[in-house]
Design a protein around this nucleic acid. Sequence first.
DNA 1: AACATTATGGATATATAGATCCATATATAC
DNA 2: GTATATATGGATCTATATATCCATAATGTT
Lengths: 139, 139
Amino acid sequence: MFSQTAEYALRAMVWLANQDGEPRVTQEIAKGTHVPAGYLSKVLQTLGRAGLVQSQRGLHGGFLLSRPGAAITVLDVVNAVDPLKRISSCPLKIKSHGEHLCALHRRMDNAIAQVEQALAATSIADILAEPSRSRPLTL
Amino acid sequence: MFSQTAEYALRAMVWLANQDGEPRVTQEIAKGTHVPAGYLSKVLQTLGRAGLVQSQRGLHGGFLLSRPGAAITVLDVVNAVDPLKRISSCPLKIKSHGEHLCALHRRMDNAIAQVEQALAATSIADILAEPSRSRPLTL
DNA sequence: AACATTATGGATATATAGATCCATATATAC
DNA sequence: GTATATATGGATCTATATATCCATAATGTT
């Protein structure tokens, strides 16, 4: 339902939100989130292009959030790497339907809309703030 | 979010629910639902193993629903071909977490649970009954 | 300037989903 | 029993997601 990539991206964002504010290198992030470093590198690139993280090369470089965790929603992260695709027009390309969805696709789209809403209602900071027996990712 | 296979399976089930009760062959279903026939054949097999459709070989054979559309939910169909996977234990395999989810995964699982609930609340018959400008799949 | 560190982008490998094709098994009609 | 219709299962192909690796560019340190 959520792709592996989205899962990795969320782990990285939450982990970064829990750091001081100094850049963290890919290797550190990978270790902290249990994500394969080589792949994480690609995911971080994508997050960078989406404007969610800033990157810095060279010594003392790495990645950090480009805005406070309170200003980044879970939906922002998911959409950056693996966009939730709403059903906006008939998937069967039936001309007579056009933009109007049939009952089946309307219901499917409603389900997606609910997820969108749930993910948009939670910020990265919310996740860190929420009390829990297990701290996120065992930070 | 929903796989192509789930989409195909739902189209086939809704289409079959709208037939009289006589078996329909793969080719007919494929034509009616705009699904590639060769692939639909595999999807129908899966639906058969899940007990959602009955199949009959030979002349006048084909597929039909194994119970009334009112007794089959959208969730049944989705789970038959592409199970919605709830997050029941920490995806990071951190021993100290065990079965207890952190805030991140709890929120993700809640979103999945919402979808589960929405899909379980709608039967195939409901979809056909619902008034709409476009009949499902232009039946 | 020379060197060490780190992200970037490209090439490539592997796994899974989506899709096609065909030989075989099974059922019906005659 | 023969011929025809139809699903079944296996093999295979293609596309996409996941993952690895490395040469290069950029940055900081000395």
